[in-house]
């Protein structure tokens, strides 16, 4: 089943076009990994897909209320407990229960601990638990394996795999092989076209 379709998308960063002519579709149960050198616009693309910034051109179509976005940082509140952090996101997304996510992420024992007392790996797990409590199908992940050791990366890969098997989708920017079966989209060719500033766009020349 086709869930995410992107047509001829162009995205801008700081008012300048960085990527152009992006077209892809992603079906339920599949993952897509964005590749390309630093600064090419992976984060910009993910933020555009997440609706945080307008696209310069092209269309993005996905069913309503199916997307959850995770940025570089987990957006955790250090003074709130693990359960309080999760409860907040569960009520924002209207899903209510956090039990499944706590168990799946093996955070049950840590539920009452303040987020600041967690290790980097535990924090990342909490960040992923946040994605689980959103109950959303389409995951947009920006460098999800930052600050994870090899074992945690494998663990993370397993969780994404599980999400895919239950009909989820994942679109992520990462340099690391997660050991999951994913399509790869190299952004480099799309940068070449964008490198030429459109002369007529602003008419400054």
């Amino acid at each position: 089943m086709e869930m995410l379709r992107v047509d001829n998308l162009a995205v801008t960063r700081g008012g300048l076009p960085v990527l152009e002519g992006l077209s892809f579709t992603l079906n339920a149960g599949h993952a897509l990994v964005l590749r390309g050198p630093n600064g090419i616009g992976k984060t910009t693309l993910l933020r555009t897909l997440a609706g945080l910034q307008p696209a310069l051109a092209g269309t993005i179509s996905m069913p309503p209320e199916t997307m959850a976005y995770a940025a570089h940082s987990d957006g955790l509140k250090a003074t709130l407990s693990v359960a309080e952090n999760l409860h907040f996101w569960a009520s924002v997304y209207g899903t209510g229960s956090i039990d499944g996510a706590l168990d799946q992420m093996n955070l049950r024992q840590l539920a009452t601990r303040a987020a600041m007392s967690l290790s980097a790996g535990q924090k990342r797990r909490l960040g992923l638990a946040r994605l689980l409590v959103t109950g959303r199908k389409i995951w947009l992940l920006d460098e999800p394996t930052v600050s994870l050791d090899a074992a945690s990366v494998r663990e993370f890969g397993a969780i994404v795999q599980q999400h895919l098997q239950t009909g989820g989708l994942a679109l992520m920017a990462t340099h690391i092989d997660l050991g999951i079966d994913a399509q790869v989209l190299d952004l480099t060719p799309h940068m070449q076209a964008a490198a030429q500033l459109r002369q007529d766009q602003e008419g400054f020349f």
């Binding site: 933020r47 609706g51 945080l52 976005y69 940025a71 957006g75 955790l76 509140k77 996101w89 924002v92």
Partner: peptide, 16 residues
């Protein structure tokens, strides 16, 4: 504070 730790971005992409 929400801007610095990224939760503002997450909230802006949430149904809120």
């Amino acid at each position: 504070l929400d801007w610095e730790d990224g939760s503002l971005d997450l909230m802006a992409s949430a149904p809120l």
